[in-house]
Amino acid sequence: MKLHKVGRRYGLRGPWVLRDVDLEVPRGALLRFEGTNGSGKSTLLRLCAGIDAPSTGRVTGRPRTAYVPERFPAALPFTALEYLSHLGRVHGLRGAEPARRATEWLERFGAAGHARTPLAELSKGTSQKVAVAQALLAEPELLVLDEAWTGLDRTARGTLDRAVAERVTAGGTVVFVDHDPARLAGAADACYRVVDAGLRPQETATRAAGATTGPCVTVVAQGPPGADPPAGLPGAPTTAPGPDGTTRLTVPAAHSDTLLHALLTARPPWHIHAVTPEEARPDRTAPRPESP
């Protein structure tokens, strides 16, 4: 997807919220947008999702899209399951598939007990889980998350992190805004800051530098003797030789499940020795000794 000289303002004489924005969103990328309140992040996401049309310029090549708003106070006359089934069909699913996937995603987010609750009676957090499930059940090629984590409990935030990693691993593109700077830290491929109606690329702590912030997971795995880890592993792990011919692979925590899945299903499969969560990525520089 490409944004060509995209500008947006509300009303014929309103101020420009965005102006002359050029952006290429590659397939399979995870993009983060930052900015202060009212800087135009949400407008940018709505343009990416195709909900808004740009006032100037154009957006080309947008694939099948799903969007999650920040709040989902949906006073709709449906139960959670009915709503999700409807949206699944709108996304192009057929037959029993929408209801099946809706149930599955509600279960994953711990909201299976609310499948038959009317949307109007759901708590804020559970409504947000429905909003997230609505987008994920369609397995969209482009997933647009506007502070979708807001209102979710800690477990559900983790589930959403992993769902995002799965989407990216499956070749989908994800763009997101979140107020938590540690959100998917280390997993994002690029970060842009919305300033003065324009986009500024932000330095992401790149993996090449080996110094990302945020929680990581180290997987100690063993492949066939002498084999290198398979190419294109999810989360682009940093690898280091481990003891006894094993390999230590370190990824951002959100990618741990997708990495394990890739290793276990590789041909030939890799054997997993250990999985260890770590608070920060172990970089190759020795820890600075404590000063007395």
């Binding site: 999702a49 195709g50 989902f72 987008a135």
Partner: peptide
């Protein structure tokens, strides 16, 4: 539809 739900439908099907 409330605006939030309308945005979800619009993203899925086109506004």
């Amino acid at each position: 539809e409330p605006p939030a739900a309308r945005a979800c439908t619009a993203a899925a099907a086109g506004p």
